[in-house]
Write a protein that binds this DNA or RNA. Sequence first.
DNA 1: CCCTGATTCGC
DNA 2: GCGAATCAGG
Length: 194
Amino acid sequence: MSWTDERVETLKRMWNEGQSASQIAKELGGVTRNAVIGKVHRLGLSNRTGVAPQPAPAAPQAAPAPAQPAAPAAARPEPAAAPEAAKPAEEDDSPIPMSAARRAIIPAGQPLPPQPSANEISPEALAKVSEVEKGAKKLTLMELTEKTCKWPVGDPATDNFWFCGLPTQSGKPYCEAHVGVAFQPMSSRRDRRR
DNA sequence: CCCTGATTCGC
DNA sequence: GCGAATCAGG
């Protein structure tokens, strides 16, 4: 397999969606996670943040060059992300707008099984879950394995029901995001690494 | 042991 | 440019 434009595009999209290299490799097929990571580096997008920080290579500018109003060079707005024409089919692609993903998921009345005894779950975790569910594999009961997140989504009495299916982090039954809401430590633990 | 990304280096 | 092997970490 080779890196066709299409495959590279998928790679970029998934990488920016926060998918892991192994997941991307699985999706693309014919490549290993190493290949994916290697490509990611070659493309120079190891940093998943949408906007490149740009280490300000600005020249020291010894002399401010007073005279000569010069042209309105001004600051470079940095085009940043292009509008990206929406794809016809395919799922909706959101660049992780943490702020917007703050709706009340878990509307009262819905049969949410592992309903955490505690009523307050970290908003971060909730946001992450709603995010993750958009990209869930939507597995059926039979498709679950020890490595797939078993978090149920939707109403079991309707067709709108599936299991998350994303990779479990370790020996847990859920993916990282769902572990976050499934197991709430005795005391709210605050630790943000990375 | 499962996984993650990062780096190296022969091809 | 590519990616397996390896490294470093959770």
